[in-house]
């Protein structure tokens, strides 16, 4: 799924440079805890999160995340956007809640890119 489609589906807004629209996304994960993301996200996923700081972009970079979608209308600060532009990780914001945004994208065909939890984090 192209970024433009994602933006349309969740009625979102792209916050970074538009040339990144070309990226193709096939799966996603929703999480607010960065350690959860680092532990269980598959490479090349979209990350839906309610967390909104530069660490999200750093996490995305480390975990090979393709794009970050901020839910509940969160808007990252300029520094976060700057890092994202520099590292070419598109940022999208949507006023939808986490549940609804995930639901819409999943229904539209995005797969779950969350690895099954290991028994040691029960």
């Amino acid at each position: 799924m192209k970024l433009t489609e994602i933006v349309d589906l969740i009625n979102g807004e792209l916050l970074t440079q538009e040339e990144d629209y070309k990226k193709d996304i096939t799966g996603a994960m929703g999480a607010d805890l960065m350690s959860d993301v680092l532990a269980s996200i598959k490479p090349e996923a979209a990350l839906l999160t309610g967390l909104c700081n530069p660490q999200v972009v750093r996490t995305a970079l480390i975990a090979d995340i393709r794009t970050i979608i901020f839910v509940r209308g969160k808007n990252p600060d300029r520094e976060t956007i700057r890092i994202a532009n520099e590292e070419q990780i598109p940022l999208i914001t949507t006023s939808l809640g986490m549940f609804e945004a995930c639901g819409i994208l999943h229904k539209a065909g995005l797969l779950s890119y969350e690895l099954p939890a290991n028994d040691d984090c029960a």
Partner: peptide, 10 residues
């Protein structure tokens, strides 16, 4: 900030 969940070392 999304950290401190006690998962870092794990």
């Amino acid at each position: 900030m999304g950290f401190g969940a006690g998962m870092g070392l794990v």
